[in-house]
Design a protein around this nucleic acid. Structure first.
Length: 924
RNA sequence: GCCGGGAUGGUGGAAUAGGUAGACACGCAAGACUUAAAAUCUUGUGGCUUCACGGCCGUGCGGGUUCGAUUCCCGCUCCUGGUACCA
């Protein structure tokens, strides 16, 4: 092969890796393990664009490097293949989503294989495959069969709870459960009907059925989770979302709130992501306080984080949705309050969110009594109080809370200061201040006042210290077809699990993928969607699982994807353990990453896995944005004017396909053939070229700025694509895709190739000994590439490779002792060309099996340093001096220099700073 | 509003235990090779100024610490991600 023929080289080695199963991972206890994972892709119909593989390339480079360093690597890939787009497509076309999904996966796989990833394809999983979702269903069953014990702080089998109920009822049970639990004895339990018992157990199960307010999206016909809703619209499709009460399965992720929060300390993730999770969990430490309503037997419980300001409470406020409101309205207020509640309730979540400036509320007419000072305070209804947080009621302290302050000002309610300071500029939180006007709390600071107030509450039995989390239980059902069926049937209205031997419960065929006429989910269309037991035939659950179900445990399945007797062999999950490097977008911070941690902790609690945190280290790659190109049509004509001249004409801007533009220069021939209406287009050129305008936008079809990796590979090859994606900039940074610099890395590969070949293109290396400059160049790159790898600074490594190859080219180096290790160092980035060079060098096995070259400091040792000499901090000259000179000798050489003398103008310097091996600075 | 991330030539970016700002690459310009083009190679390329040597300015803006600041501190501007009446 005379010239570097990337097509030939890349096809050859991709076939070789596949045939030899080069990347197949096996348990091997003689080596340290390295589990590298990329975030699960959803195989969309549009295929991969150049932004998708960015993270995969980075992780591929790391795994290839780790192999060279002697690690046993697991680097799998698979598909999160249940999802809305396939179902939407099915609704439109009638085509079964499994078919579309299969086609999309085939396309993705082909595209991924073209890039030359070192994936172990034998480990591939697909969440929509029954052999996979069998185990998703199995995990659901374990969750159903568990409750969370607060004393032991772990999930425990529901059977042991039943035993406790039988023995002593629930009086001593401290578990995470529904609010409306009543106490019963062991005898009472035994006398309950089965239905009654199941009803009670459901209140304890880690996954339970309950009426919940959900984000209902009528256009999609499904429920969405909070993180699937953006500003009141669905993330997929942008359809309006409304609040609706529905019977849904939920999971008690809140039981794990504290552990999810604490264990963030154990993982090596970017601080912003951890912070997002902390905010999402939203821990607040405070107290519950019960207020007696005057002339009523109703008590109002509020949650507050500032019980120290309890003497500053001047009114209570309830959420409009609160059930207590109806009982508290007095006759003279009835009309006003009911009208207000009606309006407030119907205001959509989105209105309430966008319109935070408008203050609204209504006085119920009732009064509550402050348990600390016996004062009567008004009870209001206000839509700034959320039904879903805390108790849905707040004690308002206008002097020290901004929202309470604004509300009180608006309605003319009292504002009473209880912390020293000035109210001139409105309310202030006064967290460091001294309490005043507060009877028993006077003179204390916040912390002490809170402790004293809580002690008072507990003594009087009207409240207690409490920790509140903002995080809600996770809704686990979707009224959709294309998802995992829940392995649940209903008897007398109570849910029961199907038997384990009947897993997987396979998704049934339906005639249409739409809800039924009477509003049931699509599974309601299936015939015989029932479960037979010895007692009869019962209806199965018609909702399916949400998208996050399958992706919350896939990292375990990868270790043992074909296992038919368990979700993964414990020996294998133990060997591979936690993911050592997880690369993916930051957009999953509060969804996938939280759910996966939750399921992992659950599986740990029941003894199914040995780790509590699934992802030890994570890097979040920045998104690749699109870079759109524009042409400028002179209005009313078929003439296009180049970007630099457009100001002289009346033009309209038009997106043009970036694939027919090179370095912002339009390919005119391709342009006129791009669309029929452009036939016969004329151009006004500048310097004989048509230059396009450019702008950074999201990569999308409609903007004609989607760049497909296949096109780049056809033109430049996979190695160039890999190098270029890394060369573009730091992995974490957001950046626009721009092919302008790609020629540079392509040239680099050809220069690299030429190092191993003579002028006539014949492979030619010499066994002569390397000269010091060559060794220096080599050892510089050995060290740099390794250091960069540890910092995940891939872009700087590519630059360093270029420098190395430039240096070796200048030296006309063709020494085997230099070029062999060089091929290894480059191989994680450009594996195909490296393999080819390796085999040309006479090696029989894959370069993957080579060892990373040993760095030797001695080749880099310098004995001369070029000292920059600064005068008053500005570099003025350079001075080459031996490194073994003393400070004094360096200073003397500098002072003797004539340029230095010129700057001194005969004066003696105020100060001379000499940092040996670094710099000289002379202060005049 | 609150919490993150960022701003460096025409472009992507490099350099932070404070020590030569602009590595590497693109683009551009000039030249070599070629009938020509492509490819390849050589040289130059932050701005202003100077015939030149050189000088002045320069890392979003304004201050500060320091012999020395892209890097540390204080105060802003703009872009960007998250979050949102959470009591």
């Amino acid at each position: 092969m005379a010239e570097y023929n990337f097509q030939e080289v890349e096809n050859k080695w991709q076939a070789y890796w596949e045939q030899n199963q080069t990347f197949k991972a096996r348990v091997d206890r003689s080596k340290p393990k390295f589990y590298s994972l990329d975030m699960f892709p959803y195989p969309s119909g549009a295929g991969l664009h150049v932004g998708h593989p960015l993270g995969y390339i980075a992780s591929d480079i790391v795994t290839r490097f780790k192999r060279l360093k002697g690690f046993n690597v697991l680097h799998p890939m698979g598909y999160d293949s249940f999802g809305l787009p396939a179902e939407q497509y099915a609704i439109q076309t009638g085509q079964h989503p499994a078919i579309t999904t299969g086609e999309n996966i085939a396309r993705y796989t082909e595209q991924l294989k073209n890039i030359g990833f070192a994936f172990d394809w034998s480990k591939e999983v697909r969440t929509s495959d029954p052999s996979y979702y069998k185990w998703t269903q199995w995990i659901f069953m374990q969750i159903f069969n568990s409750y969370y014990d607060n004393k032991q702080q772990k999930a425990i089998s529901i059977d042991s709870l039943i035993r406790i109920f039988e023995e002593e009822g629930n009086l001593n049970v401290d578990a995470v459960c529904d609010e409306d639990i009543h106490h019963f004895t062991g005898n009472e339990w035994k006398n309950y009907t089965e239905k009654r018992q199941q009803e009670i157990l459901l209140k304890y199960r880690m996954t339970y059925l309950a009426e919940t307010t959900v984000n209902w999206c009528p256009a999609l016909g499904t429920v969405l989770s909070n993180d699937e809703v953006k500003d009141g619209f669905s993330e997929r499709g942008g359809h309006p979302v409304e609040r609706k009460k529905m019977m849904q399965w939920s999971m008690r992720i809140t039981a794990y709130a504290e552990r999810l929060l604490q264990d963030l300390e154990k993982v090596d993730w970017a601080e912003p992501i951890k912070e997002m999770q902390r905010n999402w969990i939203g821990k607040s430490i405070g107290a519950d306080v019960t207020f007696q309503v005057k002339n009523h037997d109703i008590k109002i419980k509020v949650f507050t984080t500032r019980v120290d300001t309890i003497y500053g409470v001047t009114y209570l406020a309830l959420a409009p949705e609160s059930e207590m409101v109806a009982d508290l309205i007095t006759e003279d207020q009835r009309e006003t309050v009911e009208a207000y509640v009606e309006v407030a309730k119907n205001r959509s979540e989105r209105d309430r969110m966008t319109d935070v400036k408008t203050i609204s509320g209504a006085f119920t007419g009732s009064y509550a009594i402050n348990p600390f000072n016996g004062e009567e305070i008004q009870i209001w209804v206000a839509d700034y109080v959320l039904a879903g947080y805390g108790t849905g009621a707040v004690m308002a302290v206008p002097a020290h809370d901004e929202r309470d302050y604004n509300f009180a000002r608006h309605f003319g309610l009292e504002i009473r200061q209880v912390i020293e300071g000035s109210l001139e500029e409105g309310s202030f939180p006064g967290k460091g201040g001294i309490i005043m006007n507060s009877d028993i709390l006077n003179g204390l600071e916040m912390r002490a006042a809170m402790d004293k107030a809580i002690a008072f509450l507990e003594e009087k039995n009207i409240g207690k210290g409490k920790i509140q989390y903002r995080m809600r239980d996770a809704i686990f059902t979707r009224q959709r077809y294309w998802g995992e069926p829940l392995p649940v049937y209903f008897k007398e209205g109570m849910p029961y699990l199907i038997e384990e031997k009947d897993l997987p419960l396979v998704l049934p065929e339906v005639d249409k993928y739409l809800p039924t006429e009477d509003g049931e989910p699509p599974l309601g269309r299936a015939t015989n969607w029932t479960y037979k037991t010895s007692e009869g035939e019962f209806p199965l659950e018609m909702s399916t699982m949400p998208g996050w179900a399958g992706s919350s445990w896939y990292f375990f399945r990868y270790t043992d994807p074909q296992n038919e007797i368990s979700f993964a062999d414990r020996e294998k999950t133990d060997y591979w353990g936690a993911v050592d490097l997880y690369i993916g977008g930051a957009e999953h911070a509060t969804g996938h990453l939280l759910y996966s941690r939750f399921w992992t902790k659950f599986l740990y609690d029941i003894g199914a896995v040995g780790i509590e945190e699934p992802f030890q280290k994570m890097i979040n790659q920045g998104m690749i944005q699109g870079r759109s190109n524009f042409v400028y049509r002179v209005k009313g004509s078929n003439t296009f004017v180049s970007h630099g001249l457009k100001e002289s004409y009346d033009v309209s801007e038009m997106h043009v396909d970036v694939n027919i533009v090179y370095n912002d220069q339009l390919n005119l021939e391709k342009f006129v053939n791009w669309r029929p209406d452009l036939k016969g287009a004329e151009f006004i050129l500048e310097d004989g070229k048509y230059i396009c305008g450019a702008e950074v936008e999201k990569m999308s079809k409609s903007k004609y700025n989607v760049v497909n990796p296949d096109d780049i590979i056809t033109r430049y090859g996979a190695d160039t694509l890999r190098l270029y994606e890394m060369f573009l900039g730091p992995l974490e940074q957001f950046k626009p895709w721009n092919t302008n610099g790609i020629d540079g890395v392509y040239k680099f590969l050809r220069k690299l190739w030429r190092l191993y070949h003579d002028k006539n293109g014949h492979f030619s290396v010499s066994d002569a000994a390397a000269v010091p400059e060559e060794l220096k160049s080599l050892h510089k790159i050995i060290k740099k590439a390794e250091d960069d790898m540890n910092n995940h600074s891939f872009n700087t490594s590519v630059s360093a490779f270029m420098i190395c190859v430039n240096e070796l080219s200048a030296l006309n180096c063709n020494k085997r002792s230099i070029l062999e290790p060089l091929a290894i160092v480059v191989s994680p980035y450009a594996p195909h060309i490296a393999e080819e060079l390796w085999s040309l060098l006479g090696r029989q096995t894959s370069i993957v099996e080579a060892a990373y070259p040993q760095f030797n400091e001695k080749y880099l040792v310098e004995n001369i340093h070029e000292y920059p000499v600064s005068i008053n901090g500005k570099m003025r000259l350079k001075l080459s001096l031996p490194l073994n000179l003393s400070k004094e000798e360096i200073e003397k050489s500098a002072m003797d220099n004539e340029i230095v003398q010129k700057w001194l103008e005969g004066k003696s310097p105020k100060k001379v700073i000499v940092v040996p091996g670094k710099i000289v600075n002379i202060v005049v």
